[in-house]
Nucleic acid binder design. Sequence first.
DNA 1: ATAAACCGCTAACATTTGTTAGCGTAAATA
DNA 2: TATTTACGCTAACAAATGTTAGCGGTTTAT
Lengths: 196, 196
Amino acid sequence: MARIKTEKNTSRKDVIVSKAAILFREKGFKAASMRDLAESVGVEAASLYNHIKSKTELLHELCFSVANRFLQKLDEIESEPIPAIQKIEKILRFHIVEMVNNYEEVYVSDREWKHLNDPYLSNFQNQRRIYRKRLAAIIEMGIKNKEIKAIDAPTAVLILLHAISGIESWHRSKQKITAAALEENMVTILVGGLTI
Amino acid sequence: MARIKTEKNTSRKDVIVSKAAILFREKGFKAASMRDLAESVGVEAASLYNHIKSKTELLHELCFSVANRFLQKLDEIESEPIPAIQKIEKILRFHIVEMVNNYEEVYVSDREWKHLNDPYLSNFQNQRRIYRKRLAAIIEMGIKNKEIKAIDAPTAVLILLHAISGIESWHRSKQKITAAALEENMVTILVGGLTI
DNA sequence: ATAAACCGCTAACATTTGTTAGCGTAAATA
DNA sequence: TATTTACGCTAACAAATGTTAGCGGTTTAT
């Protein structure tokens, strides 16, 4: 009998969820089987069900924990008394750092949420839509204040968010530049592209 | 007996491939079953095998037909006697137009290639890697000629390519701006972000 | 020490999956 | 018109999937 090893302050469920993130990222949610996951946890597939309700529950956990982190940070930044373009830069940097440090989770949340089931699916889509609208509102504020070029704000949001997800390629890359250099390059191009 | 309807110059296989593109895009390759595909074609699942060898063959066809179009266009643009930044702009515009007009195929090629099998998988990855290197080389040329900011070229490539894939969100969006406006906005931000 | 809770195991299940075999009819060719 | 080819159908398959039931040992709490 091979018990799941836990570290301090992590439940066995936490171990499973984070192994799931790795697996879902590399194979995709649908292609990753519970038997795969069990192997990577070091246990039989059936044993996983002592800790989780279902495979989809793993996806819920991942998607919503990521979404919540981003929403919380947005709340924080929105209320700071700084120019819009600086808010955008801060949000951008937060996204980049999250994508670098919590790659698996963030990636899964970004690419695999389609496989959520209702009501979680609609819920997630709503949060996502609202999040983007709030970003667009900041950009529109920046346009009004002549900090940002007169562009279509939703398009700018879509470029920002997707450009960030390109960090996936950076992770895969053999000869990586440092995370800090990556961040500066991205900010240069993207904030530079928005600024008048 | 319900024969697959073909239009002029399209084989029954072509019909299947393009329905597959739609399905793979909306559900993902793994989650889309041959029975789903059969239904969308208007036929029984087994009947598909009179026209195709396997499910993965459908993915090959999609991925490589897209990849070939992009490679061919790159050949063409690379050899034009124009400044690097203009090459980048042309390539960018081509990507955008392709993503707008052949959404399903391009999207599938971009997101589902992971599910290819060797030797196709390695092959595709190689082509992709080489394509990106060629883009990076153009950017580096632009940097040397002081047309483009002194940034890390591979990072710039990754931003460009992923930003384009954001057009997915534009497709989903209810209140779309026109394709032409989308293109101009993207060029403004991205080319603007690269240019000194 | 004894009871209770936890947790991993084996075995099994019902579905869903991609795919093949073989039959019969419609279309294409001669 | 006669014959061959193309193609859709039903039936069936083996494999893989998520998940449950129930047993037995181990850890934790009393």
